[in-house]
């Protein structure tokens, strides 16, 4: 690692990160900051992850995800043979097929930029596939608009909450209602909105999802990253969808919010939702997922029906394209 070389040459390095792995891998001393204040400084050798996490959040946090074994149900979303060619003419997604089942989290691992984003965008209607089909609960919704997929029960946590997942200048309330303002409980006669009902519903989400704000009327732009993500999650998890497509749920979010978000995802699974979880945090996907697929160069190169039967080392080989399962093994992801 280049940083270690620099250190051995006598350089002083200040390394800023919220990823504990990185800190413990190549730092000697660590200082924790919270709310603009210095909370503590330790020798990395004398301190454990739990202490650091607690200092980062200001209370005891659960680092490991606890969950029961999945009781996977029926298939609710079947995607077959999806392909996408990006702006540079490179096939970003190369004939990918998978199925999502009720009460199951299917994790997608892979080095960033190996087709995960394109897969998510096609499954949620934000991009068009060149081949194949997307069938939701028996209904063919290939290349339909995001609105049609949402109406069919596909909720979507976008990987970028700043540019896609929220409208920053709009109020928290308006952000929370953007996918449901036309429902009969919010829309009266002649196109009039029931603003009081909308405010009520938004206030409930703010409370349940612990979005820290002065008022639901303030713009989303005024919130911290973690609370912004809670706005996205609060909306998508209350959308009454059967299928959740979740991309980078905890990217750039503090440890406390991560714990909260992970708990909520497991809760949704236990309520019977089918979940596709894409994340560049390998630890996160491995601990959250019931099943796993590995993507490399726009293809699925491995499928593990039980995520606990594999290790990060083995996944690494698949992620780098050094290893590949045979088509028969990969095909099991369709559960046919």
């Amino acid at each position: 690692m280049e940083l270690q070389v620099l250190r051995s040459h006598g350089h002083t390095i200040i390394f800023i990160s919220h990823k504990l792995n990185e800190i413990f891998k190549f730092c000697d001393r660590v200082s924790v900051m919270r709310d603009g204040k210095l909370i503590g400084t330790h020798n990395v050798a004398d301190v454990d992850r739990q202490t650091i996490s607690n200092e980062m959040v200001g209370r005891e946090v659960l680092l490991s995800v606890s969950k029961d074994k999945a009781k996977a149900g029926d298939k609710v979303l079947v995607a077959k043979d999806l392909s996408y060619i990006d702006d540079f003419g490179i096939p970003a997604l190369d004939h990918v097929s998978l199925a999502l089942r009720k009460s199951e989290i299917l994790g997608v691992v892979g080095v960033d930029g190996n087709g995960q984003s394109e897969l998510v965008r096609i499954l949620t209607g934000s991009a068009r596939t060149l081949s194949g089909s997307v069938v939701v609960k028996g209904k063919d919704l290939t290349n339909q608009k995001p609105g049609a997929l949402r109406r069919a029960g596909v909720a979507h946590i976008a990987e970028d909450r700043m540019t896609v997942g929220t409208a920053l200048p709009a109020s928290i309330e308006d952000n929370l209602m953007a996918d449901r303002y036309f429902h009969p409980e919010y829309k009266g006669r002649a196109g009039f909105l029931k603003r009081a009902a909308m405010a009520q519903a938004a206030a409930e989400i703010v409370t349940t999802f612990d979005i820290r704000c002065k008022s639901a009327k303030q713009p989303v732009a005024s919130l911290s990253g973690g609370n912004m993500q809670k706005v996205v999650i609060g909306r998508e998890f209350t959308a009454d969808a059967d299928i959740l497509v979740i991309a980078q749920p905890t990217r750039g979010v503090d440890v406390g919010a991560i714990e909260f978000i992970h708990k909520r995802i497991i809760e949704m699974r236990d309520q019977g939702k089918a979940i596709l979880l894409v994340s560049s945090d390998l630890q996160e996907v491995m601990s959250m997922s019931d099943s796993l697929v590995v993507m490399n160069s726009g293809k699925i190169v491995a499928y593990f029906e039980d995520a606990s039967t594999t290790t990060d080392k083995e996944l690494g080989l698949y992620m780098l394209g050094l290893k590949k399962q045979n088509p028969e093994e990969i095909g099991k992801v369709l559960h046919e």
């Binding site: 949620t124 934000s126 608009k145 995001p146 609105g147 049609a148 949402r150 109406r151 979507h156 976008a158 540019t163 896609v164 997942g165 929220t166 409208a167 920053l168 200048p169 709009a170 952000n175 953007a178 996918d179």
Partner: peptide, 9 residues
């Protein structure tokens, strides 16, 4: 945010 609006349906 037009991207957000499209994403929200």
């Amino acid at each position: 945010n037009p991207k957000f609006a499209a994403y929200a349906g």
